[in-house]
């Protein structure tokens, strides 16, 4: 039996696990991005005036602290986070999604903050000069202009999540990791190598699907005037 035969004869299971993998990543990235973008929008105020106390101080504190904290979370090995959440949220999909979501936070938050704060000052100033209030400026000028950067952050975080989601199988999370754990535990047995190979390579297929998805989203959501 060669690899293709293996794939063909197990196509149903493999397809199911690939879909599950895709969905888990999609949900985690969706939740994580929503949190990060919302947080980024809320805290991306201007530099606080060092001589006057204002809400900007809280925003800046949350922003900087949030970036340091989520960056630190990203360095924690996935196995450790899965282990730490297992006693709280149990075996299964919930733990897998929570941990994956945590890993998506930093990249999206960083890109959101970077995108929002690097919008050309002249554009913001002219918006202010034309009578744009703070919220209107944020939502109709800063957000659309930062969107390509934010979207790229979401794309990168998706790729990373695909490879992390594999480890979720350790806590019985759904996805291609199941093929890996199954294969390695049966090492030497028939098709065990193909199982691991399929689990690894199909991650790239999932990644390719996401890449196409993002190419379309980019096309549809990046305003025409700033498309490269």
């Amino acid at each position: 039996m060669n690899f293709l035969d293996y794939l063909a004869s197990n196509s149903q299971q493999i397809l199911f696990l690939t879909q599950a993998h895709f969905l888990v990543v999609l949900i985690a990235v969706g939740i994580g991005s929503a949190i990060s973008v919302a947080l980024g929008l809320a805290v991306s105020t201007g530099e606080p005036d060092p001589r006057r106390f204002s809400l900007d101080w809280f925003a800046t504190g949350i922003r900087e602290g949030g970036l340091v904290f989520t960056a630190a979370l990203l360095t924690v090995p996935s196995l450790a986070l899965f282990a730490l959440f297992l006693p709280i949220t149990g075996l299964g999909v919930t733990t897998a999604i929570i941990v994956l979501t945590i890993y998506t936070l930093y990249t999206v938050l960083r890109n959101t903050v970077a995108g929002l704060t690097t919008v050309d000052r002249a554009i913001l100033e002219s918006a202010r000069g034309l009578g744009y209030g703070r919220l209107r400026r944020l939502l109709t000028i800063q957000l659309p202009l930062a969107w390509p950067v934010i979207l790229n952050g979401i794309r990168v975080t998706t790729l990373i999540s695909i490879s992390i989601a594999v480890v979720g199988a350790v806590v019985q999370g759904p996805g291609l990791g199941i093929l890996l754990l199954n294969g390695i535990s049966r090492i030497g047995a028939a098709n065990s190598f193909y199982q691991v190979l399929a689990g690894t390579l199909l991650c790239l297929v999932v990644a390719a699907v996401f890449e196409i998805f993002f190419a379309i989203v980019q096309r549809l959501t990046i305003p025409r005037g700033i498309r490269v």
Binding site: V156, L159, S163, I187, F193, L204, A207, E211
Partner: peptide
């Protein structure tokens, strides 16, 4: 290199064992 971020290190590690 960018795309390979989606290649799970776990899988690479296991494949090496085979």
């Amino acid at each position: 290199g960018g795309f390979a971020q989606a290649l799970p290190p776990f899988g690479v590690l296991l494949l090496m064992a085979f």
